[in-house]
Design a binder for these strands. Structure first.
Length: 214
DNA sequence: GGTCGGATCATCT
DNA sequence: GATGATCCGACCG
C-alpha cells in the first residue's frame, strides 16, 4: 500500500514533522471564521508553506497571537474603529494574508480570521521549520533563529507586502494540514510587545518548541 | 547569562 | 511630529 499523500503531492512522511508532534495525528486546516482566539489556538500544529520566488520553505506553526478586531485596542483594526488603507484586508474574508511593516524594518504576517467584517486576525509569531532551511538561512543572513518571531518568520518565508490580501489556500503561500497539539502542550500567555490590553491572554505557543520566540 | 539603544518608515494625530 | 504586534549588535557582568 503506497504512503498517503497530501495536496503537495509529497508522501506525508516526507512532508516534514515538527519535533513536538511526530506521533500526533494529522489534522486538516481548521475553519478560520470562528472566534479568533479559537482560531489562533487551532492554527498551532498547522503547516505553512511558502514557494515565493520558486523556493520552498515550510514550517509548522508553533506560536500565534489573536487580535480580535475593531473593538480590541491592541489590534490594527481598531484604528479609527474600522477599515483604513492599511488594515482593509483585516475586514475582508478570513483566510487571507494581512501583511504590515513593523518598526519600519520588518514585515509581519497575519491570517485574517473570525467573521468577515469584524477585523479579526491571527499574527503568526513562530514556526518550526521542516523544509527549506538553507533558503531561510540565506534570506535571514544567519543560520540561528530562523523563524522564531514574527519578523524573522516573514523574512524566512520571503513574505512582503506583495502578498497583502493573498488567499492562504493557494501558492505561493498556503496553509496546509498539520498535526494536532494536545492542550497540555499549549501555553496561553499575554501578547508580546503591546501596550494596550496587555493583560489579555491571547498568545498561544507550543511549550518547548524551538520555533517559539522568547 | 542579561540588558540596552539604534535602525527605519508607514501610518496616524 | 510621534508612534510602534521587532530585531540585532554591543556591552556588562
Amino acid at each position: 500500500m503506497p504512503p498517503a499523500t497530501d495536496e503537495t503531492g509529497l508522501p506525508w512522511h516526507d512532508a516534514g514533522a515538527p519535533r513536538f508532534g511526530v506521533q500526533a495525528p494529522r489534522r486538516p486546516v481548521p475553519a478560520l471564521h470562528g472566534p479568533v482566539p479559537a482560531v489562533a489556538r487551532d492554527l498551532l500544529g498547522i503547516r505553512l508553506r511558502s514557494s515565493v520566488d520558486g523556493e520552498v520553505v515550510e514550517g509548522v506553526i508553533v506560536e500565534t497571537e489573536a487580535y480580535l478586531g475593531a473593538d480590541d485596542p491592541a489590534s490594527h483594526a481598531a484604528t479609527r474603529g474600522g477599515p483604513t488603507p492599511r488594515n482593509r484586508a483585516m475586514f475582508g474574508p478570513p483566510g487571507r494574508a494581512y501583511v504590515y511593516r513593523s518598526y519600519g524594518i520588518h514585515w509581519c504576517l497575519n491570517v485574517v480570521a473570525g467573521p468577515e467584517g469584524e477585523g479579526g486576525a491571527v499574527l503568526l509569531r513562530g514556526l518550526e521549520l521542516v523544509a527549506g532551511f538553507d533558503t531561510a538561512a540565506r534570506r535571514r543572513g544567519r543560520r540561528d533563529h530562523p523563524a522564531d518571531g514574527p519578523g524573522r518568520l516573514a523574512q524566512a518565508l520571503g513574505v512582503t507586502d506583495g502578498l497583502y490580501g493573498h488567499d492562504l489556500a493557494a501558492p505561493p503561500l498556503e496553509l496546509l494540514p498539520g498535526w494536532s497539539v494536545p492542550d497540555a502542550a499549549v501555553a496561553v500567555t499575554p501578547r508580546v510587545g503591546i501596550r494596550k490590553a496587555a493583560d489579555r491572554l491571547l498568545r498561544y505557543h507550543v511549550r518547548g518548541s524551538p520555533g517559539v520566540s522568547r
